[in-house]
Computed example of a mutant assay.
Amino acid sequence: MMTGMASYRARFDATVSFTNGGGLQVQGFLVDVPAAEVTPAQVGELFLDSLGLLMAGDVELTNLEIVEAAHKGTRGGPSADGRPSGDRPTYVELSHVIRDGMVTLPNLPGPEFGLQLSREASRELYAPGTEFEIGRISMVANTGTYLDSPNHRYPDGHDLTGYPLDRLVDLPAIVVRVEDSGRLGIDAAALATYEVQGKAVLLHTGDDARFGTPQYVENAHFLTRDGAQWLIDNGVALVGIDAANIDDMTDGTRPAHTLLLGAGLPIVEHLTSLAQLPPTGALFTATPPRIEGLATFPVRAYAKLP
Results as ranks from 00 to 15, higher is better:
Thr3Ala: 09
Met5Phe: 06
Ser7Tyr: 04
Tyr8His: 15
Ala10Gln: 11
Phe12Tyr: 15
Ala14Asn: 11
Ala14Ile: 06
Thr15Phe: 00
Thr19Trp: 05
Gly23Ala: 05
Gly23Pro: 02
Gln25Lys: 10
Phe29Pro: 04
Val31Asn: 12
Asp32Tyr: 05
Ala36Leu: 04
Glu37Asn: 13
Val38Gly: 03
Thr39Phe: 00
Ala41Val: 09
Val43Leu: 07
Gly44Tyr: 01
Leu46Asp: 05
Phe47Cys: 03
Leu48Pro: 03
Asn63Arg: 15
Ala69Thr: 09
Ala69Phe: 06
Asp81Lys: 09
Gly82Trp: 08
Arg83Gly: 11
Ser85Leu: 09
Gly86Thr: 11
Asp87Val: 10
Tyr91Ser: 14
Ser95Val: 03
Val103Asn: 14
Asn107Leu: 00
Gly110Ile: 02
Pro111Cys: 11
Glu112Leu: 10
Glu124Cys: 02
Glu131Gly: 07
Asn142Ile: 00
Thr145His: 11
Ser149Ala: 15
Asn151Tyr: 04
Arg153Ser: 04
Pro155Leu: 02
Pro155Tyr: 05
Thr161Val: 02
Gly162Lys: 06
Asp166Thr: 08
Asp166Ala: 03
Val169Leu: 07
Asp170Lys: 07
Leu171Gln: 03
Leu171Gly: 06
Leu171Lys: 01
Pro172Arg: 13
Asp180Ser: 11
Leu184Gln: 15
Gly185Val: 06
Leu191Ile: 01
Gly198Gln: 12
Leu203Glu: 13
His204Leu: 11
Asp208Gly: 00
Arg210Cys: 00
His221Trp: 00
Ile241Leu: 13
Asp242Thr: 03
Ala244His: 13
Asn245Pro: 00
Leu259Trp: 12
Leu261His: 14
Leu261Asn: 14
Gly264Glu: 10
Leu265Lys: 15
Ser273Tyr: 01
Ala275Met: 10
Gln276Gly: 01
Gly281Val: 03
Ala282Val: 07
Leu283Pro: 08
Leu283Phe: 06
Val299Trp: 04
Tyr302Glu: 07
Tyr302Trp: 09
Ala303Thr: 02
Ala303Gly: 14
